[in-house]
Design a protein around this nucleic acid. Structure first.
Lengths: 134, 134, 134, 134
DNA sequence: GTGGTCTAGACCACA
DNA sequence: GTGGTCTAGACCACG
């Protein structure tokens, strides 16, 4: 599983890791039961402190996405896939509900939000293609 | 100008105030030149630390939305309305760009995001009507 | 709220803190909304590392027992009391179910377990009285 | 002797094995002098690391429950049965003492604990019958 | 003052 | 080798 972070982002590193793992699960890039990189390995690869990885894995375990087994490693939970399908949908709705609420508070109409979202999505699309061709 | 906050929200209180003021301006609820509540008054009303209000007003001044005049108070900037129009648009795009990015990371397609956003917008609409009738 | 730990116990310190807070809530010693000691304060009082307290508070927040507010402190959740009543019962049943299972695996009958439990409870009773008079 | 483990349990695998062997002895399922599965055999059957089995057998030897003879295998100690009777009682008391302590910390009275224990024991009884009919 | 995050490095238990 | 826990100390954001 490929995990990348942006150390300069305002988002905490451990949250970036959590999100990356959940996203891989949601996209089907990762399968249930799969072993995640060990704490030390991922810490070395990302050039961060092992404790930061531990924190991310703790959160993932809390969220039911992984199970940690002392001495053997950290594995994507069996429930992960189901969780992935359900939670993924929930997270999307949460995400958009928050965005819609904020947009309304700024005084925009639903149509204006839709138009602006279309614009954003098209930009994302380009970025995505760029990534794929790279 | 009515300013409400949610102390339990993850969003910092001072940011909630900043957003509330900008939103009032964007919606036309507040007019340029209007006086904002004094630091002490707002702090008392919201039952929060005066320093928090100060911080919000500082941020609003940095954003060009208000001017603070020593001894007289904090007023919505004349430039505020125009700034409001520009910034408001920028904030909307930022908002939606972030939402779109997160949705993509979760593996959703542009169409799925559009559909889910439509759903969110419709829910907002209902809520809005409820508020208006209240 | 009085929180005591045993540094020599096999149980991790942060878990002892978590249990102590939940127990205080369950016993009614602590009320909803009450402020817990600050991270630094409790760390100083217990002569442990602040990070260990942070960890305990994180777990308590996950469990819905407390809310942490940046800059103001850590408070017993409003839901805490209800949780306290419900969870307290659940934890008791879990506790005893595990004990009963283990006892059965050791080949004891229900009556033997009851008798041995009575014995343990009487011993506890004495200890309790000792504490109260102290 | 049938030994089963739950790899997802919080209890270390080697402890589960230790407990399973002791329990079999306590219940009379296993007789003194009986040969335990070889390290490799048990490791294969349980799909675990041989080192884990070694560790369990070491602990059992320390506890005087088994004797390991170089080249021939691991056998239930002659003293095992007597030890079983004594240790079995001690383990039960330890078990219940811990449960009673935790229950007190949760603020329950002795009578409440007794009542809840009765409930747990009855549930265990049902489960047991179900197992026997299976 | 408060909590939030991160680093560095230690020691232990488990497989 | 793996994860689990703890210490020490830093810097930041929030109230």
């Amino acid at each position: 599983m490929l995990i990348r972070i942006d150390p300069r982002s305002a988002e905490p590193i451990f949250e970036q890791i959590v999100f990356a793992v959940k996203a891989a699960l949601a996209r089907g890039t990762a399968a249930a039961g799969q072993k995640l990189p060990s704490v030390r390995e991922l810490a070395r690869d990302l050039a961060i402190n092992p404790n930061t990885v531990v924190r991310a894995y703790e959160q993932l375990e809390r969220d039911g996405v992984v199970v940690r087994r002392q001495g053997s490693g950290c594995f994507l939970s069996d429930r992960g896939k189901e969780l992935g399908a359900v939670q993924r949908r929930r997270e999307l709705q949460d995400l958009l509900r928050r965005a819609a609420t904020d947009a309304f508070h700024l005084g925009f109409t639903a149509d204006e939000v839709r138009a602006a979202m279309d614009q954003s999505l098209e930009q994302m699309h380009f970025e995505r293609n760029e990534k794929e061709t790279t």
